[in-house]
Computed example of a mutant assay.
Amino acid sequence: MVIIEGLLPPSRENWETVCYIWQFFPVITAFQWVLDWYPQGKTSTNFSLNIPGKIGWATMESAGFITLIYIMLSLPRELGINELPWGNWTMAGCFVIHYFYRAVVSPLFLNPSMSPIHPFVWVLAFLFQMFNAISLGGWLAGYGPTTVHEWGGRFWSMEIGLVIWAWGLLGNMFHDDDLREIRRAADRKQRKEAERTGKPLDGVDKVYMLPKNGLFQYALYAHYLCEWIEWAGFWMVGGWNCTPARTFLVNEITTMLPRALQGKRWYEKKFGKEKVGNRKAIIPGLL
């Protein structure tokens, strides 16, 4: 079923246009390099139109994997392709696994709480997901490799890429959960105190501590680094000429790196440079 003629699923001309525009997303996020204003998460602000954290996160992040699944199921029929190679479905599966965890499982079932999200951030994240899904989806669903032969001869690099992707995902999950444990521990403490004194719960929406386990000993945003590793492996699976996967990784880095540097300044302001110590923002020992 065609949702938007020529775009969902995309025609080849429109897909190429989306891929071209998508390369310039770092220009849109360049404001992060000069401003510390980022109304989401620990740096969220009070605004009457803020979107509740869990709902906002789930809706903006789900757009990508839902759109990619739709394109994978609809575009081949439009192009007369009877069956896509297993390599295409493998990459699509990697993408869906990550974002189902990130967009559904994490915010709706695992996170104790999430700070509200400014509509501006929601719109940018939604656009990120849509451009990325159309770019990757078009490549995987008919405008990239369409036969097993096109994947041949590089199985070893695909296997290595999948291993890198998997370790990156597991590292991302581990460090995400370490951040969650900070609020889970605070919630347990509050509930124990409430049972003893009858005092109402304060909530843990704005409870922050310096994370300290795993790579957090060396970098404050180790979960970002693990996600970069994950998508570097993903790009390796697709091959170095897989432009959509490369663009995705570049856009992730250029979006998340200034955010991590902002976050380090926030940690230093809240807890003091002495407590932050020698920990870097995102790359241990370097940055």
Rank of each mutant, 00 (worst) to 15 (best):
M1Y: 11
I4C: 06
I4Q: 07
G6N: 13
P9A: 09
P9D: 06
R12N: 11
E13D: 12
E13G: 08
N14A: 12
E16T: 13
T17S: 08
T17P: 07
I21A: 14
Q23G: 13
F24L: 15
F25G: 00
P26M: 12
A30C: 15
A30S: 15
F31K: 08
T45Q: 14
N46S: 10
S48K: 14
L49P: 05
I51E: 07
G53F: 06
A58Q: 00
E61P: 00
T67A: 09
I69W: 03
R77C: 01
G80C: 02
N82T: 14
N82K: 12
N88E: 04
G93W: 08
V96S: 08
F109N: 01
L110W: 15
S113D: 12
V121G: 02
L124P: 08
L124R: 06
F128I: 05
M130P: 03
F131C: 10
F131H: 04
A133I: 09
S135V: 07
L136A: 08
G138F: 05
G138S: 05
G144Q: 05
H149V: 04
M158H: 05
E159V: 10
V163E: 02
W165F: 11
A166R: 01
L169S: 03
L170A: 12
L170G: 06
H175I: 03
D178A: 13
R180E: 09
A186C: 03
K192Y: 05
R196L: 12
P200Q: 05
G203C: 08
D205V: 11
V207E: 10
V207F: 12
L210I: 13
Q217K: 15
H223M: 07
Y224T: 10
E230D: 00
E230V: 02
E230S: 05
W231L: 04
W231E: 00
M236W: 03
M236Y: 02
N241W: 07
T243D: 01
A245G: 03
T247M: 07
T247G: 09
I253P: 10
L257M: 12
L261E: 10
Q262Y: 09
G263I: 04
K270Y: 08
G272N: 06
K273T: 14
K280C: 13
A281L: 11
